[in-house]
């Protein structure tokens, strides 16, 4: 097995560990789109501070990676800014309408064998595959 796949497996395991800790200690789903939505809600709920701190921790993750390994994780942004702008809008709206994203439906929902999450993951994977295929074709 290639080293990068091992990193992916261990990194995935840590993501699963974070969601397990959140569930066992706090009793909640570590779904990022839901947590962002909750921090934007007005009037602020009682979990506002903890949600913001979770997001701040998420932001700190790559910083700690850099301190541990001496460099940022590799990132390639290949598309134009317009693509990222439109995609961001669709991701924000779609994840809220569909009650979750890759973390809430993917990591937590699949682990709970939630019917809704299985349907959501199958849908966004299929649509994602079609979108990439269409963009490759169009150029």
């Amino acid at each position: 097995m290639q080293l990068t796949y091992l990193h992916s497996l261990i990194g995935g395991g840590l993501i699963g560990l974070a969601s397990a800790l959140y569930l066992l200690l706090d009793g909640r789903i570590a779904g990022v789109s839901g947590i962002i939505g909750a921090t934007l809600r007005r009037p602020a709920g009682e979990n506002q501070l903890r949600n913001l701190i979770f997001l701040f921790g998420l932001f700190l993750g790559p910083v700690i990676y850099r301190l541990s390994f001496g460099g940022w994780p590799v990132i390639h942004f290949e598309a134009s800014l317009w693509i990222f702008a439109l995609a961001g809008l669709l991701v924000g709206f779609g994840t809220r309408l569909g009650s979750g994203c890759t973390s809430g439906h993917g990591v937590c929902g699949l682990a709970r064998l939630s019917r809704r999450s299985i349907v959501a993951v199958a849908t966004f994977l299929a649509v994602g595959i079609i979108t990439v295929a269409v963009m490759n074709r169009v150029g």
């Binding site: 995609a87 991701v91 994840t95 959501a120 849908t123 966004f124 649509v127 595959i129």
Partner: peptide, 12 residues
Amino acid sequence: GAAIFGVGWGMS
């Protein structure tokens, strides 16, 4: 919602 998210996810 999952389909709309899938389009944005695939694009970006």
